[in-house]
Design a protein around this nucleic acid. Structure first.
Lengths: 201, 201
DNA sequence: GGTTCTAGAACC
DNA sequence: GGTTCTAGAACC
């Protein structure tokens, strides 16, 4: 029973997720060295026999014995698989696998709390939906404003037509009036002016 | 060498992908019955020992020996894992797995061509990017049109102001002129009318 | 179209 | 936050 009171016991004051605590114990425990342990430089860890590891070790620490689930968690916490450098090694019969994380290193137990679980798929998807909804809302808004502005424009264009008509009408009236005034003045002049009067040179 | 001329040899006239042809052979071949075979009703197939199957059978048909890659292909072609009905069976030591597809059934080899590979992730992603780009273009367009319409609106509003000023101005001139006309007429009347003249009753 | 590594999503 | 099944994406 290596698991019982593991949670939080490694880095007491901090909140390191159960998976990371257990993973550290798993890798660091010399008892497991046959199946899982640190790489030579301590910057990664290596599982020697995936099948045996999954069936014999995993269920002691987690609620399953599936390598796939273990790998899913590793990826969830940002671990990356290291490329197998030796592909020409005795054909096929290599069943090992190596993972690393910049903050998962031998001796650097304090860095465990720097390893963050990626934002859950659910939240991410919600975020994405939110973003799309935001865009759709924006477009809706723009459409509304466009309709508004189009309405205003039409109103103003109508008003403009009316104004133009009134301007033309007023100008015509003004012209007519001007003619009347001119004629009246002309008439007055002929009334006042004695016939045959000459201008001074 | 079970693989060599498999491609297209099962359903000659059609284009069944290599994976499906090989899968059919794999399941249908009685030589493999210890590790993979049809379920009792022939509507699904069962792998008995994933680890042995992956290491011993897979490389004879495919270019790898990974169960994960095999499962990835199954999912790609729409196969679904069947839930393990018997979870209380002798604790843990069950390493079998069962998959099914509506068109993958014992004896129904002709239905193989109805199984379609899902649209590749790449195409899908391109489609999605295209869609986003289309939306962004639309928004861009709308923005452009909005700017245009705003410009037009401002122009018309200015024109409107000018027109209003001209209307006011014309009305004022008209009023002044009217007064002049009235005064002139008044004047003419006083000139023409004899002083003290009375109206008839 | 196949293989590999990582992520999404549902369910717990 | 853990486990499982399926899909995305890159590379071949």
């Amino acid at each position: 029973m290596a698991v019982q009171d593991v949670k939080g016991s490694i880095v007491p004051g901090s909140s390191v997720p159960g998976f990371l605590s257990k993973l550290w114990l798993l890798v660091d425990d010399a008892d497991n060295d046959e199946l899982i342990g640190w790489s030579h430089n301590g910057n990664s860890f290596i599982v020697q026999d995936q099948t045996r590891f999954a069936k014999e070790i995993l269920p002691n620490y987690f609620k399953h014995n599936n390598m796939a689930s273990f790998i899913r968690q590793l990826n969830m916490y940002g671990f990356r698989k290291k490329a197998n450098l030796e592909h020409g090694t005795l054909k096929a019969e290599k069943d090992d696998i190596e993972f690393q994380h910049p903050n998962f290193k031998r001796g650097k137990i304090g860095q465990l709390e720097l390893i963050k679980r990626k934002v859950s798929a659910r939240e991410e998807s919600k975020l994405r939906i939110d973003n799309v909804n935001r865009i759709l809302n924006d477009v809706q808004d723009m459409k509304g404003k466009q309709d508004n502005i189009s309405g205003t424009l039409e109103g103003i264009q109508r008003e403009n037509q009316v104004l133009w008509r009134e301007v033309v009408h007023l100008r015509q009236r003004h012209e007519k009036q001007q003619k009347i005034v001119n004629r009246l003045i002309q008439f007055l002049i002929t009334m006042v002016k004695p016939v045959g009067l000459k201008r001074k040179p």
